[in-house]
Design a protein around this nucleic acid. Sequence first.
DNA 1: CAACCGTATTAACCCATCTAATACAGTTAG
DNA 2: CTAACTGTATTAGATGGGTTAATACGGTTG
Lengths: 124, 124
Amino acid sequence: MIAINFRDSRPIYEQVKDALRRLIVSGALPPDEKLPSVRELASQLVINPNTIQRAYRELEHDGYIVSVPGKGSFARAQSGTDSARAKELLAAFDDAAEELIYLGVTAEELKARLDEREARHDET
Amino acid sequence: MIAINFRDSRPIYEQVKDALRRLIVSGALPPDEKLPSVRELASQLVINPNTIQRAYRELEHDGYIVSVPGKGSFARAQSGTDSARAKELLAAFDDAAEELIYLGVTAEELKARLDEREARHDET
DNA sequence: CAACCGTATTAACCCATCTAATACAGTTAG
DNA sequence: CTAACTGTATTAGATGGGTTAATACGGTTG
């Protein structure tokens, strides 16, 4: 379900956050879908439960999941557009686009890429 | 010229690398333009020269600048498309686009954004 | 009641980052 | 030629975030 790169300089809990957020955002984890339990995912990835707990806590804080003691953690329906997050993402989008164009990728190619995504998204 | 965020969890030398790479990639630092010296930039940002040196060393390794003992460090003309870097950037581009669309931004808006960049780039 | 859930807390360790101090060789202007 | 710059290298030390470990408590469920 998730792959951790231990060589990566990025903290494990950040990698877990990103991987789960991605699964939710892509629709792979639909709203109300149950996530693996803290202990289960920890043993699966061979890392400490505290690390997973931190990832879950922050994902809940950011509105991507909901955790209920005794029951589990669940993917959440789209939260009202987090403008801070959107700003961050737009900056990342721009930076990537700028350097890609510098490296020779055309804007047309990037647009085509956006179309592909949309097509894939619509058929779901 | 560069702004460092000391609260940011990202290492200073990474922030410096990104800022400089961005200046080069955007054309703000044209090829052969001289960069601030290691010591100068260090005192300007109030950080240790070793930290700047590390950023410069890695930027040179990645082909973005050239350093010459006794002379200085200089922006470099576009290096042959680094395919690993391009792959990385395309992944970042896709991830940002996916989550932005999830948050309600339309593909059309993103395309328009690419056009703006192109227009700005052409007039330079 | 047993076996799961999420959650909290404390202590300890490790390692990347950053700083500090110093040194050496190449370049360049006065 | 020398002083003042460059980049570069090395060693040592302090700091802090990330991670682990162990343990505990309350809610849920069959």
